[in-house]
């Protein structure tokens, strides 16, 4: 019976099946590929706007070419250095504090004996990730509101003076870093925790037999086994270092002008230039710069990582 079945399929030609099945595979990709074309690749074509003086009545293709004027104009504004610095500096802070805290948390969770407790704490840590920056802005406002904010109420009860947080730009370097940690540390620590679960337990047993201390185990087993995941996630973040989390910088600061000195970043600037000034050309020029620099950065970080340790590279 079995032999017969084999024969029934084979003579019809393996090639015929392969062709049919390859056609099926292509057909599966079709809709997603079209969607990606429409919403990701078409806009890339729209980048010609960066080299044009866009006028609504003339349209994208009808508007006049202006060469690099949009770029030049952007470099000449005094906002250029401010937003570039803010974006890089804040993202750098976010990356460093983020990696340190989430790896630390993952190790603590890993040290917990009770799996049940691990799960409960994980949930508590992840939940902020499910909250939008809009709602987070309400929470921050509830804490920091100049008139009613919880913090000011407490300060006043202790006999201090109320502080108008929304006019203190320096404070927001810390406030935004805390907000970023609050929202993202949990989810990152789950990723690190899960890769710790994959570590061979025999390593820890061997270490125990050799009388290794907790600290030695962390240093020689845990950190090295997290290495690849840490570097992959960090490469991705460095690649995006010129992109700011728009929701965080726009909503949580309530887009208050007095805070721009520390909170105005490239993305909020692009949005403002487009929305209130209506300068489409310059806005796309800045966006194009952001994309190119980001692209180069990913390539470089990945190349360097690959040189040092191929295992840790992204691709």
């Amino acid at each position: 019976m079995r032999v017969k079945k084999d024969r029934a399929i084979k003579p019809s030609g393996r090639k015929g099946f392969a062709r049919k099945s390859s056609w099926q595979l292509y057909s599966m990709c079709a809709i997603p590929v079209i969607l990606v074309f429409l919403f990701n690749y078409l806009p890339m074509g729209g980048l010609v706007l960066a080299f044009k003086d866009y006028r609504y009545d003339k349209g994208i293709f009808g508007s006049d070419w202006v060469g690099l004027k949009n770029f030049k104009f952007f470099f000449e504004t005094d906002t250029f250095s401010r937003i570039t610095f803010n974006t890089l500096f804040m993202n750098f802070l976010f990356i460093v504090t983020g990696v340190a805290c989430s790896v630390g948390l993952a190790i603590l969770l890993f040290e917990l004996r009770s799996r049940r407790a691990t799960k409960v704490f994980q949930t508590a840590l992840i939940v902020p990730n499910f909250i939008s920056w809009v709602i987070a802005a309400y929470m921050v406002f509830a804490l920091l509101s100049p008139r009613n904010g919880v913090l000011n109420v407490i300060i006043e009860q202790l006999g201090g003076q109320k502080i108008d947080w929304y006019s203190k730009p320096e404070a927001w370097i810390v406030i935004l870093t805390i907000c970023n940690l609050w929202k993202n540390v949990g989810i990152d620590s789950v990723v690190y925790y899960a890769s710790l679960m994959g570590v061979d337990m025999a390593l820890f047993e061997a270490a125990d037999i050799d009388g290794a201390t907790k600290w030695q185990k962390i240093k020689y087993i845990i950190i090295p086994s997290l290495g690849p995941v840490i570097s992959i996630l960090t490469i991705l973040k460095i690649g995006n270092i010129f992109r700011a989390d728009f929701g965080l910088f726009y909503n949580v600061t309530r887009n208050v002008g007095t805070l721009y000195q520390t909170t105005d970043v490239i993305d909020t600037y692009i949005y403002r230039t487009m929305q209130s000034v209506g300068n489409m050309g310059m806005s796309s020029a800045v966006g194009l710069l952001q994309s190119i620099v980001g692209f180069i950065l990913v390539m470089i970080t990945n190349y360097v990582t690959k040189k040092i340790d191929p295992d840790r590279a992204l691709y």
């Binding site: 990701n40 890339m44 487009m274 980001g294």
Partner: peptide
């Protein structure tokens, strides 16, 4: 084709133009 969109994007304004106009 898919991976490239992670590395490079048209950005806010061109996307806005494509979607609305």
């Amino acid at each position: 084709y898919i991976y490239f969109t992670m590395l490079f994007s048209g950005g806010l304004v061109p996307t806005y133009m494509v979607i609305t106009q």
